[in-house]
Write a protein that binds this DNA or RNA. Structure first.
Length: 520
RNA sequence: GCGGGUGUAGCUCAGUGGUAGAGCGUCACGUUGCCAACGUGAAAGUCGACGGUUCAAAUCCGUUCACCCGCUCCA
């Protein structure tokens, strides 16, 4: 694999384990595929990212494209909701896509059953019926493609064929043995498995008795919790369109192949905004959030060319976004995706799809519409959704921070933005005697009232600096012989290895300046 | 779900049927005193798991789990 970033994912994973950023879940039992735990340093890092998001999105004053202060409120909805939520959102149908696989050696492809068609091409010159397998979005499309496929596989067919497509799902799902008649769209061998359900939502049961009557789902996205609370928020706060609801929380998806460390986990955490707007303002708000969110990721330390903003092509757009102002991804070039990129956050104009769906399925219908005093108009607001992955973001911070440096004892250091660094500063007595530990401990106790700081009196000073380099601690404060005479300490900078002396009474002020939250 | 690879101490690895090892890290004591210093010592291993072959298995066989790579999937 090419590594334009010059960073090895294996080494990053090893450091994460060694220093306590990320462990495999249930490791002593052999681990469990797709689940990861955060160790002491990783927990602080992820918390810093989530807190920065909350501060910058919900708490901090921000001016929108209309020149007014943005209204944003928080929400904390449950992971398990009424199952109808997921019928309304389309997840029950979407997540139950049956799949068919091809058993032929060398093919072994997997297809969504609803996209697999058998197309009848009439009689070949010897009078035999000819069918080809086609993968397409619709019957019409399959009929269009069929002759080209027959040509590619040199399958002889009727001189004037009238292609007729049959859907695997509709025609064959009930009688699995009939699948033997079905050619594989990839290799044309009649070796497809019967359709098997692929349920991407986690299921459970609410109540002690398991039955279909009390089946529930673990949410596959936090967004629906916001949509179903739309009316509650409008009715209980003084917010009015345009306004946003922000939520952080766990979501669950039975990914087919969890892979790439924490990048594709089955349990993961989202940071989502649903920003409700008048449909006529979609363009401005979409552009605003897209640019704002891209700038935010840069502000927390993803400053290199490894971060990019990518506008979606028309054919990638989700069903609810086809006619909208657009969708874009904020992407990071991880060592395991390089030279490609992996998604950190998607910013999508979801139109009024979700609110309409819930209005329909809940029976509330027009009662779910929003009444806009200013416009004297009742409507379903449109939504701009910036939806970010907290675990993916944390992983990007780790990959970005990882900086090999053979010239220093640790061989590597974690160059976190000070605002993101799990440990902000470490306090060392140069020598663990002669009154230095007492002074150092006093400083440590003072600083830990406000920041995550570390105190380490043991072993050589070089070893202590090296350990802090691997943890990504930006500042080390050392109490030495001179401190006892003039009340100054040395500040050692992680990135430059430079040192300077500052007054011990100025350390708090120094850290406040350096760590203070970044402006977007 | 398919194919390939890997799995021995916290980490990196050695160990091809016969008493489980090294370096680094960790901890303690001493020494040193601004970049993983030195000395002494200590803790630390179900050899991924289960089963089989064998007098004897980290080693051979089977199954399984996890991770990595390539497909596939990612509404």
């Amino acid at each position: 694999m090419s590594k334009p970033s010059g960073k090895s994912m294996d080494e990053i994973v090893a450091l994460c384990r060694r220093r306590g950023f990320i462990f495999q879940s249930s490791e002593i039992y052999g681990g469990i595929n797709g689940f990861w735990d955060y160790g002491p340093l990783g927990t602080e890092l992820k918390r810093n990212l989530k807190n920065a998001w909350w501060e910058d999105v919900v708490l901090r004053e921000m001016v929108g494209p209309d020149g007014k202060t943005i209204e944003m409120v928080g929400l904390d909805s449950t992971i398990i909701m009424h199952p109808k939520v997921w019928e309304a959102s389309g997840h029950v149908a979407g997540f139950n896509d049956p799949m068919v696989g091809c058993k032929t050696e060398g093919c072994k492809r997997l297809f969504r059953a609803d996209k697999v068609f058998m197309v009848d091409l009439g009689l070949d010159p010897s009078g035999k019926h000819v069918d080809v397998g086609v993968e397409a979005d619709s019957k019409a499309k399959a009929e269009e493609l069929a002759i080209g496929i027959a040509k590619r596989f040199k399958i002889r067919h009727d001189a004037n064929p009238n292609p007729i497509a049959f859907s695997v799902l509709e025609e064959f799902a009930e009688i699995p043995t009939d699948m033997q008649r079905f050619p594989c769209p990839n290799c044309q061998h009649r070796t497809l498995t019967p359709p098997r359900p692929f349920n991407l939502m986690f299921e459970s049961h609410s109540g002690p008795i398991q039955s279909d009557d009390n089946k529930v789902y673990l949410r596959p996205e936090t967004a629906q919790g916001i949509f179903v609370n739309f009316l509650n928020v409008v009715n209980t706060t003084r917010v009015g369109v345009p306004f946003g609801i922000a939520q952080q929380g766990k979501a669950f998806r039975n990914e087919v192949t969890p892979r790439n460390f924490t990048f594709r986990s089955r349990e993961f955490e989202q940071m989502e905004i649903e920003f409700f707007i008048h449909p006529s303002t979609a363009k401005e708000w979409y552009a605003f959030w897209r640019d704002n969110r891209f700038a935010w990721w840069q502000s927390v330390g993803l400053t290199s060319a490894n971060l990019q903003l990518r506008e979606h092509e028309k054919d990638e757009l989700a069903h609810y976004a086809k006619e909208g102002a657009g969708t874009s991804d904020i992407e990071y070039r991880f060592p395991f995706t390089a030279p490609g990129f992996g998604e950190l956050e998607g910013v999508a104009h979801r139109s009024d799809y979700d609110l309409r769906q819930h209005a329909e399925h809940s029976g509330l219908r027009d009662k779910m519409k929003y009444f806009d005093q200013e416009r004297n108009e009742k409507y379903f607001p449109h939504v701009i959704e910036p939806s970010a992955g907290a675990d993916r973001g944390t992983l990007a911070l780790i990959c970005e921070a990882y900086t090999p440096d053979p010239s220093r004892p640790s061989g590597v250091y974690m160059k976190f933005h000070p605002r993101m660094a799990p440990v902000k500063a470490a306090v060392f007595p140069l020598v663990n005697k002669e009154g230095m530990p007492e002074v150092a401990e006093k400083l440590y106790r003072e600083l830990r009232k406000k920041w995550v700081v570390d105190y380490d009196p043991k072993q050589s000073i070089g070893k202590r600096y090296a350990r802090m380099d691997e943890a990504g601690t930006p500042y080390c404060l050392t109490i030495d012989g001179q401190t006892l005479k003039d009340n100054t300490v040395t500040v050692r900078y992680r990135d430059t290895l430079q040192q300077e002396r500052i007054g011990i009474d100025r350390v708090g002020e120094f850290l406040g300046q350096k760590i203070g939250s970044a402006q977007v």
